[in-house]
């Protein structure tokens, strides 16, 4: 069977809408009847990635490809890119601006959390061009 594809434009202008795409994917996974653990991992990993796109890259495109065996999440933006991926993967390292930190974001746990909750994480990033995260979660 072809995977189910859900596609969302993540708005970078309006911080209050951040998290809507992951919320919609969560709802769909519940309707399909995936286990609470899978739903939880997808929801958290995708949420962290979505928030990152809003904070650092003025939004982008979020896609979820759902099949029985695995769920793939692709988060693609045309933001500034990540200069040093190894450094960005370190817990606590953050380049988030002050105003976002005041909201409780930017603790430097986004990427480490995505890695923690996913089975595979691939980051393709070119400074000045953009970043694409490919997250795989096996069901």
């Amino acid at each position: 069977m072809e995977p189910i594809v859900l596609n969302y434009q993540v708005d970078g202008e309006d911080f209050s809408t951040a998290g809507e795409a992951s919320s919609a994917v969560k709802k769909a996974l519940k309707q399909l009847g995936f286990s609470p653990d899978v739903i939880r991992r997808v929801a958290i990993a995708m949420y962290e990635g979505e928030i990152n796109m809003v904070i650092h890259a003025d939004g982008g495109e979020a896609t979820a490809e759902i099949s029985q065996e695995e769920i793939r999440i692709i988060l693609a933006d045309r933001g500034p890119g990540i200069k040093d991926i190894d450094l960005a993967m370190q817990e606590g390292y953050s380049t988030a601006p002050e105003e976002v930190r005041n909201l409780g974001f930017g603790a430097g746990m986004g990427l480490p959390n995505i890695k923690k909750y996913s089975d595979e994480l691939k980051i393709e990033s070119t400074p000045g061009v953009g970043t694409t995260l490919r997250i795989l979660i096996r069901t």
Partner: peptide, 17 residues
């Protein structure tokens, strides 16, 4: 699970498509 499309995951996926 009354909001679930189907109790069988495969059939639920077909329905969503």
């Amino acid at each position: 699970p009354v909001l679930q499309l189907d109790l069988d995951l495969g059939r639920a996926m077909q329905k969503m498509q």
